[in-house]
């Protein structure tokens, strides 16, 4: 009798300890991991070589950059490849961002930091939308570059929009690898590191020294004119058209007025990606190589670049430009729905 009880307790203890051992991976669900990865890069000391490849129907674009993160909020990116980007440097110190491409830039561009409050705010909102729009599941863990990672899969709750696979470092929550697939499950982007070095601390001054001492310009950033739907309607000095249709999951993010109030830009997002609609009073737009499509008296020029598709058309004395990475049929549907 006593012995039986002893075995029961023993078994219970074993099961308990097994649960405890495996708990680090059970303790967090996908959403929490994604949330933690959101700001991870601003909280680590890190150097890595990052490779990004994008795949369009006819081309592969490949970008290699040396990336340095330093807590808090310091980012350094130096492109190594392709040749036309080699030497391009981005330094972001949390307040300002400097961009410079030798041979092309005669001046250093100063822009707002990617970690400044209003961009962070925008990303926070996008994260919320992402969490609402996508199913996030953990898939069996792997190791990347010798480090333990969580592997997440993001799939849209509706049929549109990208599928994402993320490999997130367990210790620092840095995204070590990322793959993006379109709605046909074709790989369209992959990001990964070929080298990583955590806990490396740098002299920022030495990094600054890589920039030449040339005059600086602050590029005009259209940010102060970021408006809500109501505001943009009131402020535009011509009659605005809005899409009657948006792909599932997409909502209005913000509106901007550009080019001396001649162009209005409307941004819609599903959290991970944007669809942007520009409109202005009739104008000629030079486009380079493109295709021509005709839908119910709507003639649309179309082209596909490494980061999305572009549609241009005229209607009722206005010119429209629509850009996004959703399937072409979706973009056409949006275009047709604009009244």
């Amino acid at each position: 009798m006593n012995l039986n009880k002893f075995w029961k307790v023993f078994l219970f203890l074993i099961i308990l300890s097994l649960i405890l051992v495996s708990s680090p991976s059970l303790a967090q669900n996908g959403k929490d991991i994604l949330r933690l990865s959101f700001d991870a890069q601003s909280q680590i000391d890190f150097e890595g070589i990052r490779k990004i490849q994008t795949y369009t129907s006819d081309k592969i674009h490949s970008f290699v950059a040396k990336v340095i993160y330093q807590k808090p909020n310091f980012i350094y990116v130096e492109y190594l490849d392709p040749p036309y980007l080699k030497g391009r440097i981005i330094i972001d110190n949390g307040e300002k961002r400097i961009e410079y491409l030798p041979g092309i830039d005669k001046k250093i561009k100063i822009l707002p930091s990617f970690n400044c409050s209003w961009i962070k705010e925008k990303r926070k909102k996008a994260l919320k939308i992402t969490l609402a729009n996508f199913n996030i599941s953990k898939i069996p863990e792997e190791k990347i570059l010798g480090r333990e990672v969580y592997t997440l899969s993001l799939s849209p709750k509706n049929s549109i929009g990208p599928f994402l696979k993320l490999w997130i470092d367990k210790k620092t929550y840095l995204i070590l690898r990322k793959e993006k697939y379109n709605s046909e499950r074709e790989l369209i982007l992959s990001l990964y590191y070929t080298k990583v070095n955590f806990n490396k601390h740098f002299s920022k001054k030495e990094l600054y020294n890589k920039l030449p001492r040339i005059p600086s310009i602050s590029k005009k950033f259209p940010l102060p004119s970021s408006y809500t739907l109501q505001e943009i309607k009131a402020r535009a000095n011509f009659f605005l058209s809005f899409p009657g249709y948006l792909p599932p999951g997409y909502t209005f993010q913000e509106g901007e007025i550009m080019a001396k109030r001649k162009i209005v830009k409307l941004v819609y997002t599903n959290g991970l990606e944007v669809i942007v609609l520009f409109q202005r009073p009739s104008a000629k737009i030079a486009m380079g190589p493109h295709k021509w499509m005709n839908f119910d008296n709507l003639g649309i020029r179309f082209r596909e670049g490494p980061y999305g598709k572009t549609l241009v058309w005229n209607r009722k004395k206005k010119t429209f430009v629509l850009m996004g990475e959703v399937p072409l049929e979706e973009l056409v549907k949006i275009a047709q729905s604009i009244k």
Binding site: I91, N93, E95, K96, I98, K107, I108, I110, P112, S113, C116, W118, K204, K205, Y208, N209, L211, R213, I214, P215, S216, I217, S218, F221, L223, P224
Partner: peptide, 22 residues
């Protein structure tokens, strides 16, 4: 002004990157 939105730098001012940021 230390406002990232309205960085108004005169175009011809030659300054070192360190000065620009820190």
């Amino acid at each position: 002004k230390e406002n990232p939105l309205s960085t108004q730098l005169s175009q011809d001012t030659v300054r070192s990157p360190m000065e620009i940021l820190e």
